[in-house]
Amino acid sequence: MDGKRIQTYWSSEVDALVKTYQQFETLIPAPKGEGAEHKGEDGRFVEDLVREYLGRFLPNGLEVLTGFILRPAVKTGEAGKEREGELDCHSTQLDIIVFDSSNYPVFQRFGSSAIVPPEGVVGIISVKKHLNDGDVKKECEALFNAATLCETLSSNDRADKVRGPFLALVSVRSKIEKSRTDTLDWIFAQVDLAYAGKSDISFDKLVGFIGALDEWSVFKRRPEKNIKHAEYIGFKHQDGESHLGLQFLLTGLLSVFYDKTRRNLRRPGYTAFPSRRPHDKRLGAIPCTRLR
């Protein structure tokens, strides 16, 4: 397998994304320290930037939105009563919701902000300008709760569930304390802590990717069979490997969009990881009781 053209292409796109943010800092500098002068606008600019880049490369039927997921306790399908006895519930505000608007309606829309039903959610991404020590556990817990709202049945009303949305936490840069023995090990420990005490955890509700786009990536391996745990591996980006983070994001989103529980379409050859490039660390595994 080759794919070097694709790897070079994605690396250039990530480099351009990071450079665009650096230009924003140059034009609107903070009086002291890194970043732009207006912290709120700084964070929103990064969210908009990531949304724009994802929107360029995803199928036309997928929109990259921000907002809320609303799961009303109503009948689904023709006679689905799986939510009987539940109450209407909604997520916290989510930075990025990748939504299949070609097949599912939206409750309310205002610009790129929307309130959407869970059936059409393909991905949920938390975005941070700088990933700090306190972010990992907090954001993983929020992603878990949002993914729980998205547990839905397949469209033909069978008992099996649709594959859950791809979950990710992404930043432009890492501000994890440099004195840590190993950043990747510390990240995984925080992920593990986020799910401690939770029962009946499905594989789909565990975060799929955490990364600083031009530095490192933590990725959840998809199991082949006998779902008992989710294994996490880590990559420290080398020269020419800035494509890894964006490719993990695109691969995760497209794998959900083209999953057989959602549609009968062949997934295109769109991403290309280096052949025989081993991961830098096997970080550990988190127990789960089922796939979905």
Rank of each mutant, 00 (worst) to 15 (best):
I124M: 11
A230Y: 00
V191A: 02
I187F: 05
F235C: 02
G33R: 05
F99T: 02
I187T: 11
I97K: 03
G269K: 10
D133G: 05
D259Q: 11
E34W: 14
K137H: 12
A146Q: 02
D280T: 06
F57E: 10
K260T: 15
R71E: 08
F144G: 06
D157A: 14
V136E: 01
R5C: 09
Q93K: 11
S154V: 14
S12I: 05
A30G: 07
I176Y: 02
S174F: 04
F99P: 00
R221G: 15
L283N: 00
S12R: 13
D42M: 08
A30W: 09
Y270W: 15
L169P: 00
A168M: 10
K39S: 12
F99N: 01
P59Q: 10
P117T: 04
F45R: 09
I187E: 00
F68A: 07
S102G: 11
A285Q: 08
I201G: 05
V121P: 05
Y195F: 10
A16R: 14
L17C: 10
L27N: 13
E41T: 09
K81P: 01
P274E: 09
Q23N: 11
G120H: 04
L249P: 05
S102C: 07
A285R: 09
R290Q: 14
L54H: 03
E151T: 05
K75T: 12
R276M: 14
L254D: 00
P165D: 09
T76V: 14
K138W: 08
